[in-house]
């Protein structure tokens, strides 16, 4: 069993071997162990959060993580953004034939470990193998279900004038690290992806106060694009302080060289928290004592006008509008 072949996806003996030797080994739990076509789950009454996400990152292994860890964190973080406690995940694999089994094992192992850290169970899954060239090593889809605690009402529509905006750490690490690996740029910078689950941090915050208005993880398009979405959804303005936005020096340096902007770069282990001013300092203090929130900072506030717009106060004291990302950030000529 050295490389994945089309036979691994045929549904026959090889598929079963793959399921038993790999997926059941690393995802092991009672529900998956039942081996039925559907996972059957018990629920109490209440509100539920349900989300799905597909992961096609290249390269599949990168500093700070891999596609498997990302696939678990991504869906867990989407559930956490609803204030939900994530419980169950499904995962679908589309594997390109010829992928070394050892690589797939590392990915599956890391999914199992990350699920354990998050306290979620991977209860159902699917595997398909496609011909060489029809996928890029492996694509993973995960869907997730979580329960929303009574009294929690978090939504991108809930930002209110006067609210404070907190970000849980440095901006742009994931986007910058993937960019450097993908483009094989000869830049000597120790930058790792920030890929991490945010559900425990959200639980901590909700233990301090249920009065959280918005939670959102700034993934593709970065902080700037996500805040524009929220400003639009809530019909409010957002004012940021450039000085206050935490960015790792290495990331700032790489962006400077290539003409890119950290506030438009993807993050995979950060959360934007918008909440009433009266709770901001308590929440910030709690964040700073969590390993995923050491660099948390209050970066701005919500205003009533201009609705739908994000602006930033620059280091010179001047101000400018921060728009959504259009297409990809393309490095400049000079």
């Amino acid at each position: 069993m050295d490389i994945i072949t089309l036979a691994h996806g045929s549904g026959g003996k090889m598929t079963h071997e793959l399921i038993n030797n790999l997926f059941k080994k690393y995802f092991s739990n009672d529900i998956l162990g039942q081996g039925d076509d559907s996972a059957c789950l018990e629920f109490k009454a209440g509100r539920m959060a349900f989300t799905t996400d597909s992961f096609v990152v290249s390269p599949v292994f990168f500093k700070g993580g891999n596609i498997g860890k990302l696939a678990v964190c991504g869906t867990v973080n989407d559930l956490a953004s609803a204030g939900a406690k994530p419980l169950y995940l499904s995962c679908g694999f589309i594997i390109e034939e010829g992928m070394p089994v050892e690589e797939l094992e590392r990915i599956v192992c890391s999914m199992g470990e990350t699920a354990k850290e998050c306290g979620v169970r991977i209860v159902t899954g699917d595997t398909k193998v496609v011909q060489k060239g029809a996928a890029d090593k492996v694509f993973i889809n995960t869907s997730g279900i979580g329960i929303i605690p009574e009294g929690v009402n978090v939504s991108g529509r809930n930002a209110k004038p006067g609210d404070k905006i907190i970000i849980t750490g440095n901006m742009g690490d994931h986007g910058c690290s993937i960019f450097l690996e993908r483009e094989k740029l000869d830049i000597n910078a120790e930058i790792s992806s920030d890929c991490a689950p945010m559900n425990k941090i959200v639980e901590d915050i909700l233990n301090i106060t249920m009065d959280i208005h918005v939670l959102r993880d700034p993934t593709r398009g970065g902080l700037a694009t996500t805040l524009n979405e929220i400003a639009g959804q809530s019909g409010v303005g957002i004012k940021l302080n450039e000085d206050a936005i935490p960015v790792r020096q290495e990331v700032a340096g790489v962006c400077e060289l290539l003409g890119m902007d950290p506030i438009y770069m993807a993050n995979e282990g950060k959360m934007i928290i918008i909440l009433p001013e009266c709770h901001a300092n308590d929440v910030l203090k709690a964040l700073k004592s969590n390993k995923y929130g050491e660099n948390a900072a209050i970066i701005g506030e919500v205003t009533d006008k201009p609705a739908g717009r994000v602006s930033i106060k620059t280091v010179t004291g001047g101000s400018r509008i921060v728009d959504m990302l259009v297409g990809d950030q393309l490095p400049r000529i000079c």
Partner: peptide, 16 residues
């Protein structure tokens, strides 16, 4: 220079 144009906007210099 285009890089100046961009930097002037980025730092909000016209607004000052």
């Amino acid at each position: 220079c285009g890089t100046h144009t961009m930097a002037i906007f980025k730092y909000g210099i016209r607004s000052l």
